[in-house]
Amino acid sequence: MAHAETAHAPPVEVEEATTTGINHRKLLMWVFLGSDCLFFGSLIATYMVYRGQSIVGPYPADIVDVPITTISTFVLLMSSFSMVMAVAAARSGNQKRLIQWLLVTIVMGCGFIGFQVYEFNAFRVEGLRYETNLFSSSFYTLTGFHGAHVTLGIFWLICITIIAARNPAGRPSGLDVDIAGLYWHFVDIVWIVIFTLLYLIGGFDAGPDAGHAAVQGWNWVTGLVS
């Protein structure tokens, strides 16, 4: 274990024997992510069910800002990249790089949350409160829960960064960072789905008087079925 003391040696990882051959912490994280799919699946479905059913404004077309959200989506996507670089740095035992990439990831995560705070506030100013209509309730619930996930991830990364800064030798291990990274990427892929459905596709839905194809919600599916 002598090499563990030298500054740039990879942190020692004790692989525990498990029946599956998979590290149990990693397994736990994947099980959690699998179940979180269900959580977001039902919230997204709820939004889609109520899509185009609001009878009082503001409607998505009136207030959703797709260009701005494209930028925040891009920021979150790039934070996944820096996260993956942090994991690579941790795996090769480069503590300095690890901290740098973690900080970049944290900053981008905060940037994304900043966009969301700005967006929620802009909506509120336009008169879209949580209880205003079906759109607002389902929208705030879904994106709010996603934002909460991102916020939790930011706290997690901050903790890891602090640990890394205080223990130059060894901790956090590659696995520690890896698992936090899994969570971070998951939050990213959930946003990929939300961005497509709520913004790119649903962001232009108008009110009942618009006569626009999109506002008819799922009626076109009914048309196919019957």
Binding site: G34, D36, C37, L38, S42, M48, V49, V221, V225
Partner: peptide, 28 residues
């Protein structure tokens, strides 16, 4: 494991949309 969760989530989502969105005409 992940795909199982994903598929379950998808089935739940599709079921919800069918139940409340498609086969219940014009909630609006």
């Amino acid at each position: 494991i992940f795909v199982a969760g994903l598929v379950l989530g998808l089935i739940v989502a599709i079921a919800l949309v069918l139940l409340f969105g498609v086969f219940r005409p014009t909630p609006r």
